[in-house]
């Protein structure tokens, strides 16, 4: 039995995950917590939010995020890939700026228009 705090929403439910019993989750306030508990103990993932260089806007950075969670151990690899990039305005919110980042299957999208 493992105890976890669900990070899917600000409620932060205290989860109990039974590894011996097919990762059965208790203590979750909603179904998303059950999914989180199982994934967290098998192959943890996170959405990465950061910024990339952007020329031609009011500020020199454009905020971005991965459109899906990526494996936790690849977070720094994703950060290095973002560090290589440079965008040029105009950028639209939701625009894919890097697809299938580090072969994670996730796209990097802009989170504001510039």
């Amino acid at each position: 039995m493992k105890e976890l705090i669900c990070i899917v929403c600000p409620k932060g439910c205290h989860l109990h995950v039974d590894e011996a019993n097919d990762y059965k989750v208790t203590g979750n306030g909603c179904p998303r917590g059950a999914e989180y508990g199982r994934i967290e103990l098998t192959h943890p993932t996170r959405v990465v939010t950061s910024t990339v260089r952007c020329a031609g806007g009011r500020y020199p950075r454009c905020p971005v995020k991965t459109d899906q969670p990526v494996p936790k151990e690849q977070i720094f690899e994703v950060m290095r890939a973002l560090d290589q990039m440079e965008l040029t305005a105009p950028v639209q919110v939701g625009q894919v700026v890097l697809s299938d980042v580090c072969r994670t299957g996730a796209n990097v999208v802009a989170t504001r228009s510039i």
């Binding site: 929403c9 600000p10 959405v47 939010t49 950061s50 905020p63 995020k65 919110v93 989170t111 504001r112």
Partner: peptide, 20 residues
């Protein structure tokens, strides 16, 4: 720029700039 905004209001997880 992190996510965690809008779960109640938009029922999805947005970053600050997206919410604004």
């Amino acid at each position: 720029i992190h996510n965690g905004f809008g779960l109640h209001y938009f029922k999805e997880e947005l970053t600050g700039p997206e919410y604004a």
